[in-house]
Amino acid sequence: MKRILIVDDAATVRMYHRKILVDAGYAVEEAVNGIEALEKAIQTTFDLFVVDVNMPLLNGYGFLCELRKQDVPQSPAIMVSTEAADSDRTLAYQAGANDYLIKPVKPKQLLTHVRLLLGEVRE
């Protein structure tokens, strides 16, 4: 079972994403800020990260930069943001995100991206 870490300070968003992903058969863990996420990512290996931008303590960019510096398997990361501007997108890519989705993410779109980023062939 593929493991996904949802990093978001908003409980509703975490719930929303969790429901979509759990229903699709993924093992999901949650972190409420960048620091917690980084600790979890170093302890265990995740196959994918779904990361919010604005969070207390360490935001999404900071988390991704730190994650990409770690000596751990570098799994793909989706940054989920409310900003649609190209400059925000580029900032996410610079920080180490591999994909960028605009909130609110449609369940279908999220699942398609997750599936592609995890390398799963559609049955």
């Binding site: 990409r68 390398g119 799963e120 062939v121």
Partner: peptide
């Protein structure tokens, strides 16, 4: 590395 993983996975998914 993350880009490479992403590319590999994307191709595998297809």
């Amino acid at each position: 590395k993350a880009v490479a993983t992403t590319l590999i996975n994307c191709c595998a998914a297809m």
